[in-house]
Nucleic acid binder design. Structure first.
Lengths: 195, 195
DNA sequence: GTCTATACTAAGATAGAC
DNA sequence: GTCTATCTTAGTATAGAC
């Protein structure tokens, strides 16, 4: 028997991360104490240090795995082909992906300043990589002559900001389904880039 | 002599609010201590309580006066007239106003959850009033038949989210002036509403 | 693997001297 | 109007028992 009886580390670890995610999203990183996280999991504060070296790592791990998932999921969802096809796919992907992880998305935008400088750089690079995905689509559309944009970088940032906004107001029991919202945004983005 | 000699309350009070604004914007409300604010002003922590009943009021006052200024400034800037004229004015106004108060804007979006429920309601109502300004412009454009939008509420939120994004990346010494940025966004918004 | 106990630091806020 | 001192509470993190 290689494993101790009664061991529950493999259960507790994800519970710690889930509790941290929920609490950071709700109250903010700085406002949440290790004691609160421990209480949510049902262990004592000291026990948390079996699963994370410190509070900062809890935040960083959360944000890093979120950004990794985001980039990997787009790589999977990217249909390739012409710019118009990819732009529509990007808008739908972004809205759907983000609405399925409201907490992680919220933390990733709100808690950047609570990362140590080294951790910040890592996350920032991944965020920039994601923005570049969209900018490259717009550039391809420019090259093909189907878009006529003053500035692809700025347009990419504007579109992403617009799409991120959905997470702040969307409610499951609202008057529009996720698919309807995505459709409206697809049309709006298409018009904005003059496609 | 109605006033004590050596009194500097009228100087210190604004210094306290300015320091709070600077520090809240930089580190976040929860991460800033009253002692830090006091140090920034050059007084002892206890002295702050001459100017604010507590830390929460410092945050609320900041956000409330920001929102009041915003609504008053638009009332001033609103050119009236047709929807197209007002929409362009709104975009330019929003970008310029927000870029002139990055700290207050940042706080107003990031620290909503650190308000007490009563204070939150007050700020939220003002925010909604501002969104309604834009929505009413879009509705007027629909009535005049110059816009054809699936959903005016959602479009208003999308535009504001897009405009707010400017504050996260704009730098004074960047390659684009404030006027150039505003021009690009005006065009993008016009296309997005199909004007 | 988790608990209790605790070291150490710092928070918000107040009292009273000056 | 400001300072020093202090009350009370709570934070992160660690040590050592079980």
């Amino acid at each position: 028997m290689a494993r101790k009886s009664g061991s529950s580390a493999e259960k507790t670890r994800p519970l710690v991360h889930a509790a941290a995610k929920r609490l950071f999203a709700r109250h903010g990183f700085a406002a949440v104490s290790m004691r609160q996280i421990a209480a949510e999991v049902g262990v004592q504060a000291g026990a948390l240090y079996l699963y994370t070296p410190d509070k900062q790592s809890l935040l960083f791990d959360l944000m890093q795995s979120h950004m990794e998932e985001l980039l990997a999921a787009w790589a999977q969802a990217d249909p390739g082909g012409d710019a118009a096809t990819r732009l529509q796919a990007f808008v739908e992907f972004h809205i759907n992906f983000n609405l399925q992880r409201v907490e992680a998305v919220f933390i990733s935008y709100m808690e950047l300043r609570n990362l140590t400088p080294e951790n910040f750089t890592v996350i920032e690079d991944m965020r920039r990589a994601y923005e570049t995905v969209l900018e490259d689509i717009l550039k391809a559309g420019m090259a093909d002559g189907i878009y006529r944009l003053e500035d692809t970088k700025l347009t990419a940032l504007a579109i992403i900001a617009m799409l991120n906004g959905v997470n702040t107001w969307y409610r499951k029991d609202g008057r529009l389904s996720r698919a309807q919202v995505a459709d409206i945004y697809v049309e709006m983005v298409k018009r904005a880039v003059g496609g």
